[in-house]
Design a protein around this nucleic acid. Structure first.
Lengths: 212, 212, 212, 212
DNA sequence: TATGAATGAGAGTTCATTCAT
DNA sequence: GATGAATGAACTCTCATTCAT
């Protein structure tokens, strides 16, 4: 795998992401996917050896998008560890919004597919948790007890905020920046990290990269 | 439905909860369930008219366990609204632990089954969120921006704490009381609700009803 | 069989006739029948040893109603063999109307159930054909070639006339007596049996026993 | 439907016609049909989306065979309307014989399957009745009262004649031409349509297209 | 490489029949 | 005699996967 015509492969992945996020893994058939990707169901099997193989690849993709991308963002230089935490948080929620369908799969439709997919999911999630744990630990004033548990609350909250906003009625939902602000304020306060509201808003408008 | 031999019905529900939490809804067949419940697959259909009907019944059961039970706990008298919030939080995580498999279904395996099941899930979850929103709003010192978003973080965290602990290696995981303490401390602080650690621990040991 | 509580047995038969004529043999379940007969499905089997046994019994019932009844009518004394033919024809269509549901089963829903039922059906039908063949043969002026074929056309026509009228829209269908008149006139003419219209109508109003 | 490999489709139809005519709709399973058509049961569903869909298609086929074919025959030129009536009658019974199994389904096994199938059946039958009504009405000397009822007797008789002959013991049954002659003579006489026997026989040997 | 017809195991469901009570 | 819960074979239909072309 991963060697042949990468364009076709991407077509499959896009079709699958779209359908999985809409109907879920089990209600999506290979025929649905290959139809949407403009190919025959036989061709699908030239690129993936099974439906399971496909979902695993999708998780790898998430892994890359979130993992590599966040790593890169984390290594940029910031004026303080606080700004770094806020910046990376903003990148994460932005990335969720940029890949809405993928996020829906990741955040709401993952589990129950099979052990492999679940493992992939946990790996991706754990990686994020570890990343954020590192960021938090670099902030001297941060007060917490179990860093893993704390980081889990934190990462989960980013997902909750993004999901709630994405699935909400566009005509009545608040401004996305405001949601991010409320989310970060809540969790920074839980960590006793003090950032003035104006400063926090400033960071957010600087690092949230999604245009509504 | 709901009229015949309630014992048999419960056997089915128990078998289903066990299998759904282990393998997920789609990987569990009616035959799996009826085998585990020591009956023929035809007998299953004397108690439930379809597989969907069963999962809905299970969600109703969750609804009742969590909904009615928490309501009752909320109406007990406490010395302060802070104690009430802590007490109900403790009851919720205790209830999760008491019904481990059910909680796994609720917290990790719900979505992607079908619209009805998802609706049931959202109802149950929304109900909890609304309950906790009410509890938080009764605490004058609590500082938050969007009460729904805030309560969502809070309720989600109870699930995360319980799930993480349940799925962790029993030989190395921390004491459950400690996990609950860390969780509540984190979120109370986010809400600027001040309860001294000793007081909080006291409440927890009073209201967490699960014996490991 | 045929020995136990005859009342219960009749309840079953009535329920079955009603349901079979409405939904057909295969779409009617034993539960449907036993529900309608106000008994449990187990009780059904005290009276009939199978669903097939029941349909056979129903055909026996038809056999009796049509066979014995017509025989009796045929042995009455009439002024002429022509009158006898007309009279018995009238009794036949009247009997169809008197037992609408049974007739629907007999005339439209019979075949395809099983070999036994088909045999029963053919027996009943053959018996009628033989009867009418006898009646026709007693009329010296009747001109025909193959008496069996001729009698078959004749008997079939009685069924067609009755069925068409029963299933027609009551607000627009013609008077039943008129339908019988048209039917008999057609077939008597085919047989070159001359009965003046007034005489024929007289016979019909005398022998058609159904009140609309 | 109706697009893929038409040969396979016909194999299914042939298998189904054969089995339905032998055992009836309900006693014939998809497995029976697909076995007889030399394919797996899954393949069946590539050609028909359900068992119901198949029986409807078979009725459509009858519709076409009888409807279009008879229309065509009716539009041929004949020396008189009497000859036209006889000719078309002969084509109808010939067609029945040419498609024995199909005729058995059409003439005896129709009802009780489902509403759609019944409607199809009535449509086909009504079409024939209307056709023959038209033919009869074009004969000035024809004497009848209700043209629909009359045409119904006539069409039904064609079916009866064909069926009786087909199901009769080949070693003892009369010559088919003779059966057609008797049938037509009976009904023409009922309509007071006078055709000399020699003329009628001539027509029949001209228009009956089946070789025993 | 690409196709899509073909496969067949396995799913959910029904229901005639049995039998302990 | 009467019940109705229980059975399990048999049904229709789906779909991931294969393979000849």
């Amino acid at each position: 795998m991963r060697t042949k015509n990468e364009e076709k492969r991407q077509e499959i992945v896009n079709a699958a992401i779209s359908l999985f996020s809409e109907k879920g893994y089990y209600k999506t058939s290979i025929k649905d996917i290959s139809d949407k990707a403009h190919m025959s169901s036989g061709t699908f099997y030239l690129y993936y050896k099974s439906k399971d193989d496909l979902i695993l690849d999708i998780y790898h993709e998430v892994h890359e998008i979130l993992g590599k991308y966040l790593n890169e963002k984390m290594e940029m230089s910031y004026s303080s560890p606080e700004e770094r935490l806020v910046a990376v948080s903003c990148f994460l929620v932005s990335k969720y919004l940029e890949n809405k369908k993928l996020s829906v799969i990741l955040l709401t439709r993952t589990i129950g597919i099979n052990r492999h997919a679940e493992n992939e999911y946990y790996n991706t999630f754990s990686k994020s948790v570890a990343n954020f744990a590192g960021l938090i630990q670099k902030i001297p004033e941060a007060d917490y007890m179990d860093i893993r548990l704390t980081a889990t609350f934190y990462v989960q909250a980013m997902g909750v905020a993004a999901t709630k906003w994405m699935l909400a009625d566009p005509s009545t939902r608040p401004d996305f920046y405001e949601v991010v602000f409320m989310t970060l304020r809540y969790h920074l306060r839980a960590l006793t990290i003090e950032i003035p509201d104006t400063k926090l808003r400033e960071y957010i408008s600087k690092y949230v990269t999604v245009t509504e």
